[in-house]
Design a protein around this nucleic acid. Structure first.
Lengths: 332, 332
DNA sequence: TTGAAAGCGCTAACAC
DNA sequence: GTGTTAGCGCTTTCAA
């Protein structure tokens, strides 16, 4: 038997198709009696609305498009989790696009996702191509940029200041008594570069910034890389007594490498990570990290894009981060 | 200006709409000359096909539905990564459903995803409700179950034997000279229960299985829980000299707890994890784990569901796992 | 409050 | 190889 349509349900309930449609989408426009009849017919036939037909007829889809650079990065799984939570139970579903840190790819994917027009777009970062920004503005849908912060969003934005977060973290290392602080970074996307800038500012403000205190790579971040980059750093900057890492898997890798090489943490080397991904608080010694509001970003972005009540009233939401000071920077 | 349609493109190219459609979807059915004209018109107008209209007219969508229990679990991000890789560049896109380990939720989500009929379904585990199996069979689309293995899949299946993997791992602990082996497990879903069964079998085959050697919880797995469960285990089973963990974050948590409590690994306690999630090989000491073919499962499932050439010729694919023996079970 | 008619953009089926 | 016609299932608009 073919799938039942609105007409079938209507016939079963003794009403017209359009009444069924209304009963389902805006029950308040239909009389109590008919609504009940329709409900029974829907159950009986096991009717499921055809999304494509609905989308085609109304020219709007009920999906929220979410563009993220990568799925394997824990940072984004947290954000997606937040969005997923906020959307759960609403009439919206999410459609995820992976840009692989490539603006051109982002533009291409988004173009296909914007046809038909979704109910909203959540997009990571500020680095959209001009074409992409144009498309988004023309689409006339709510757009929320996430992760970063800017006074001039395309539409709305929720995130935090990566420069400031990194600057604060570096200052924490300085305040803890470390003198020769290095920077370790992987996946040097624009937000990572901002963290590097924040690091540089803190160092310069407190003395002299030396070239050799920075060890970075464009490879995706992972635990192994933390060890590799620590090797690189200590060979080019032997007097190094603390490191600020771009992301928590690097800081964990640095700790393990210290354990292998017999470097004492925090006495001989202080370590500070970024994002507080859940493992930092568990290692021995535990690792200081910058706790960033990842899930919260996801949740708020979803609320803003669907215009929910829980949504903030301003289009620019600058969330705060905190330094979670732990054993890895607690010098005696 | 409104979005251009097939008719617009046709007018621009001096052909009919259907010719444009054919030129785009099956170029071999259209003459060289027209194909070129169409291509130019498409570029000029910036034409993007309307998926809904296509889906509605043809009654098939080009999405591959993927049902997973959770996104925050690293295990599934690996699998999704594999699927994403395999689908990249194909004409298929993926639609992800999160079941939150709930068969009823799975059924509900799937019902809405099956309308209109997708090009294929990839679904985790064997524990679908009867209704769900029925729906999938009625839909008449390729279905690939993943993660586990069974002689009677709904349609196709790719995974590995969790019982056997756990049994082999436990045997490795026994062969390494451990006498009182415990089991630590979180998120006790059906596959975890199979791992527990494999553990029990190996223990029973080599002596006596005692109730108190098992410490489990239904909470989602995380590093912290590893420590908690080790506490529980050692208090109820003090003579314990090795643990097999359900998942790698637990084993990492166990190692950290040992470091906190001054328990020597591997001499006083042997540790073996599961899934080899990337961190196990980096800790100090490194942790033995069962390396499971997560990405491969994703890749193959995608190939099977879209009937690609790289796909296996049999509907049942039993992949192998390997024990990656590391320092945490290397007793001197 | 309910219904009839028209049409969203595309493709299947059939002609030419 | 190309075009014509009809219709996918729904919503919009307008009328009753």
């Amino acid at each position: 038997m073919p799938k039942p349509t609105l007409v079938d349900v209507g016939r079963e309930a003794g009403v017209s198709a359009i009444t069924v449609s209304r009963a389902l989408r805006s029950p308040e426009k239909v009389s109590e009696a008919l609504r009940a009849k329709v409900e029974i017919a829907v159950k009986k036939l096991g009717y499921v609305p055809n999304q494509s037909a609905s989308t085609l007829a109304s020219n709007k889809s009920s999906s929220i498009v979410v563009m993220v650079p990568s799925i394997s990065n824990n940072v984004f799984t947290d954000v997606l989790g937040g969005i997923s939570d906020a959307l759960h139970g609403s009439r919206f579903n999410m459609q995820i696009g992976y840009t692989n840190y490539d603006s051109q790819e982002e533009e291409r994917i988004l173009r296909s996702f914007l046809n038909p027009t979704p109910s909203g777009v959540i997009i990571s970062g500020l680095e959209q191509t001009d074409e992409t920004r144009q498309m988004l503005e023309n689409a006339g849908v709510p757009v929320v940029q996430i992760m970063d912060i800017s006074p001039k969003p395309i539409d709305m934005i929720v995130g935090f200041s990566h420069d400031q977060a990194a600057e604060t973290a570096t200052q924490h290392l300085i305040d803890s008594g470390y003198k020769n602080i290095g920077f370790i970074g992987a996946q040097m996307d624009p937000r990572s570069l901002k963290r590097l800038a924040g690091f540089k500012k803190a160092i310069s403000d407190n003395g002299e910034l030396r070239e050799q205190c920075i060890a970075v790579t464009n490879k995706p971040s992972n635990v192994r890389l933390g060890a590799t980059l620590l090797d690189k750093l200590t060979s080019q900057f032997p007097e190094c007594d603390a490191v600020f890492c771009n992301n928590d898997d690097l800081s964990v890798g640095v700790l393990f490498e210290c354990q292998r090489r017999g470097i004492k943490v925090p006495d001989e080397l202080g370590i500070c990570g970024f994002n507080d991904l859940g493992i930092s608080s568990e290692t021995v010694p535990s690792i200081t990290s910058v706790t960033t509001p990842l899930r919260e970003i996801g949740r708020l972005a979803a609320a803003m894009v669907i215009g929910e009540e829980g949504a903030p009233s301003t289009p620019i939401v600058d969330l705060s981060y905190t330094i979670s000071a732990r054993e890895s920077t607690k010098r005696v």
